[in-house]
Design a protein around this nucleic acid. Structure first.
Lengths: 217, 217
DNA sequence: ACCTGAACACCGTTCAAGT
DNA sequence: ACCTGAACACCGTTCAAGT
């Protein structure tokens, strides 16, 4: 008999259809964060709403409050994830560059700016001003990203490629320069910093070289 | 008879009270922008709403639409005003510094970062990503702010204080560095870039000097 | 514990209507 | 031309209630 089997299949499908949208989300928190990243890429930070996230996850509009105290906390979690993604990109760029300090610094900087341009909404969330005291994990994620650069600078100093002035200061000066390029490029189109037809990579490399070589005659 | 006079005074007051909140706003557009600046300083960019602006101006919640097509345009006008305020601050700092190029550059950079910290919400609006093609006046205001720095760099080059490489590139490299310091300081507390008890001015001066002197050994 | 539905106070924006 | 009031579709957040 094929009919009973057919019925049973339909039954299973119905159970799935009824249960999927309610309750049993294996990991709603991470699902929501993944959806947030999608929505950010699609419509920008302005259009990101908890209600839309919940809708796309197939849960009620206040299910997110089971996992986050408020929208601010969601944004902090998104930012945290952003720093991890950024760190991966930068790390990969560094390891693919040669063992030359200058090359590594430029590769890391280019990766940073490319990440900023390819995930500009995510970047805006990462550098939105917020109460850091409330989100220690966010601070940790951002610091570990910065630490990457610190190690690069330190080894550059040890190899005699960079001046031996304060490593932290030097690291932060590079970070500021590269972040400035990223922030301006996001807000004012990359062409604001480009002279003509140059690529973003060219500009980053030029600016970092200016920093390395100095401006004073 | 004093009674008629008394009555007439009340009458005038009533006319005032009835007419003030309707119609006759001399310059609602600028009133709204001034109120927006107030609200930004009070509650940050997140809490800035057209309806609140209108309420504080004493007009209906859609009176602003007589002067701006939408909220985006209001933000663009606020940004534009911000660049003008910034330009004034930087200009004043430059003129108060000595005639030494390095001193002037550092003074201008310190003024930039101080403006960013003292008007962080305004700064966020100025560097929010938007469709620049829609707001040519905003582009103009930001470019005139950048032009200030360009002139400084150019005269520094002419006096032999700065290398004679591309003036635009050099200008933008300085801008990126200083803006990076500002952006990071706004998002991650100034202390993120400060070593210990140093002042913002110290940090800016140190970073700009690193750029001027170069990092390469 | 995890999720829902109803409710609240707020948005930006549109539109017909008033002067 | 300039402004209003009512209305719409959206928010974030709270809360009592269901499993």
């Amino acid at each position: 008999m094929t009919v009973p089997i057919y019925v049973r299949v339909i039954d299973t499908v119905n159970i799935e259809l009824e249960r999927m949208p309610k309750y049993h989300h294996g990991d709603l928190r991470n699902t929501l964060l993944a959806i947030a990243t999608e929505l950010l890429a699609e419509n920008g930070v302005q259009a990101l709403s908890l209600r839309k996230m919940a809708q796309r996850a197939g849960v009620s509009h206040n299910a997110p409050y089971m996992h986050f105290p408020d929208k601010d906390a969601v944004l902090a979690a998104i930012a945290e994830e952003g720093f991890r993604l950024l760190t991966v990109d930068v790390e990969s760029a560094i390891s693919q560059a040669g063992d030359n300090t200058h090359q590594q610094l430029i590769a890391a900087s280019q990766a940073y700016v490319n990440f900023a341009l390819n995930h500009s909404s995510h970047m805006q969330v990462m550098f939105r001003s917020t109460d850091l005291a409330k989100y220690p994990q966010l601070v940790e994620a951002s610091q570990s990203s910065l630490n990457q650069l610190f190690e690069l600078v330190k080894s550059g100093q040890e190899q005699g490629d960079l001046k031996s002035s304060d490593t932290h200061e030097m690291t932060k000066a590079i970070w500021a320069m590269v972040h400035g390029v990223a922030a301006i490029s996001i807000a004012y189109e990359p062409t604001t910093l480009l002279p003509g037809q140059a690529s973003v990579e060219d500009v980053v490399s030029k600016f970092v070289n200016l920093l390395l070589d100095g401006l004073t005659a």
